[in-house]
Design a protein around this nucleic acid. Sequence first.
DNA 1: TACCGCAGAGAAAGCCCTTTCCCGCAGGGA
DNA 2: TCCCTGCGGGAAAGGGCTTTCTCTGCGGTA
Lengths: 357, 357
Amino acid sequence: MATLSDVARRAGVSPATASRVINGSSKPVTDELRERVLAAVAELQYVPNAHAQLLARSHRSAVGVIVHDVSDPYFAEITRGLQRVATDQGRLLMICNSYRDPDRELEYVELLRGHQVAALILAGSGYHDEAFTRQLNEKLAAYEATGGRVAVIGRHEHSGDAVMPDNRTGGYLAGQELCGLGHRAIGVVAGPRILTTTTDRLAGLRQALTEQGRELPERRIRYAEFDRDGGAEATARLLDADPELTAIVALNDSMAIGALATLRARGLAVPQQISVLGFDDMPIARDVTPALTTVRLPLVDMGVRAMSLVLGVGAPTPRVEVLPAELVRRDTAGPVPLSTRATAGSAPRARRGDSTS
Amino acid sequence: MATLSDVARRAGVSPATASRVINGSSKPVTDELRERVLAAVAELQYVPNAHAQLLARSHRSAVGVIVHDVSDPYFAEITRGLQRVATDQGRLLMICNSYRDPDRELEYVELLRGHQVAALILAGSGYHDEAFTRQLNEKLAAYEATGGRVAVIGRHEHSGDAVMPDNRTGGYLAGQELCGLGHRAIGVVAGPRILTTTTDRLAGLRQALTEQGRELPERRIRYAEFDRDGGAEATARLLDADPELTAIVALNDSMAIGALATLRARGLAVPQQISVLGFDDMPIARDVTPALTTVRLPLVDMGVRAMSLVLGVGAPTPRVEVLPAELVRRDTAGPVPLSTRATAGSAPRARRGDSTS
DNA sequence: TACCGCAGAGAAAGCCCTTTCCCGCAGGGA
DNA sequence: TCCCTGCGGGAAAGGGCTTTCTCTGCGGTA
């Protein structure tokens, strides 16, 4: 690999001059030398060693991002927002997938710190886990103590800058909608219990139902992975235990899609026999059939805000921005059926082998 | 930020010893010193500067990946495969989104080279663009000349290791299926003309039709962006020009989903009135309604192969692995309707405002 | 003519690690 | 007793770059 001194030697100048030409330093260099250097760069296909540069330069530029999984649409949208701002400011993003493994999350904080990122953004639900939270906060504090900036998206346990989707109100809106449609027997397909996102959304939902004199007993909640298969499976369990259900709230859209698959496999018509509500409003939500009624979160905007916080001029006080949730009515939620679906679910009629796999 | 010498000083040892403890060097260190060093590390919250490490160590470990967009399911799946192998081998992945901008692709090759990656993987279609291809190959050659390994996924213009999905056969299978179902008036919703993936798939499709004495005139092909909205829009144009169509082949699943949205908005029943075929078999394909009949590509496996090639022992001859495409029959492709759909499409009946937006 | 100032180039000091090389010391064999 | 060996530790040399500091030589001023 050609080095700067190779270039300098070939151009017949000192490494200092070569460096100045290559970086467009403010220090003037005569045109003749400049051209000789550029020629040498081209001939040698020289590319500066980024690590050496970052070591020699004092200022840090890259930004680290830790998400559950970039390919999960929820995080893909957030990342899109992050990218937009970062690119505008000429920042490189280092994106890490934690796959919701707390240990990996901790490791990535270290890794990114080691890579000298200027800021760190953690996106995705927090955990109901004292020990982990404390550990994480210690690590983040240590990082902040050395001048690093931190922002979190969707988790409340951090004391610094934060962007918070209003999960609780979102859950409340979902509950209100279903109550308005006359539903009483409402099941919930929930994400992992340990995630604060799950409990926040659940809390809002429960509040809405309680206010309407309805209940949300634990037996009508099933916890599973926050993805399509988790939703499909939880829905099946829910239906098996309680065939009287007239509505299902899935705590994110992926789970809702799984729920739809299970319902389809069992021959239950949505929304005629049973209503389904999602959460997040991922792009695919409008393209499933029936199109998903869901609670929209401004995902891209959440990313934009978080990155702006972190790259903005250092605010003295940590800022928390709460972004509103909003109900999007599409086709999966309808009025409660008039007749009791007494026999529904008792004769599952699989339409396709792979629908619920 | 604490440095290694800070740690060493605090532990009362030399930086060399501290380094050995921290990296688990093979050189033995007495337990007493080891503990002193570890204590100092903990107290100072020391994290080694990754750039300094990479500069000091000779061997390169990270692998660079350039894809169109990780959040596009096609690339998300490939990336999953890449990750799997990389993680097994303790390699860090640097993933860059080119958003199908050739210039950005070139820039990222430089960037990753500058970051001293041990290997480079380019995933995603090549371009019908001589100048760009030459430039790219020059850059890659320069990189390979310095010991870097390169593999491409799904593009044939590179001379080194490659993993190739059999796009042409995939197109052929799609054509065969539709011919078998009796279709003659077949429209194609294609990706950008400039992509080799588009032309390869199209070539296979055309071959199948030709063998069956059918035709695929240019007027039945619409080129658009390789995404949902592109598919929706191209389908609309296709239908406007030729309402007699009994089948539509979308050249990837995202476009197929857009096509379904347009057909739904126009009140055309799939597959009773018109059949739809997708390509790729992204995870969502089975969850749309009707479930998408499509050509499956072993996306995850493509990633696994590519990473294995690049991390495997340096083979003397460049290897090209062709991975087979396979037809997956679901619910969007049916026999050609018996009656001519003379009036269909003339009375579009929008079901929802946002279906085609 | 002597001196000053400045433009433009190079020398060299880091940036933070890893790793080779070397040194001192203790123990074992002759 | 002396020498050799081997172990544990430190000194120091990079690794490739940026940047400050220094130096040279020129034009301009007194």
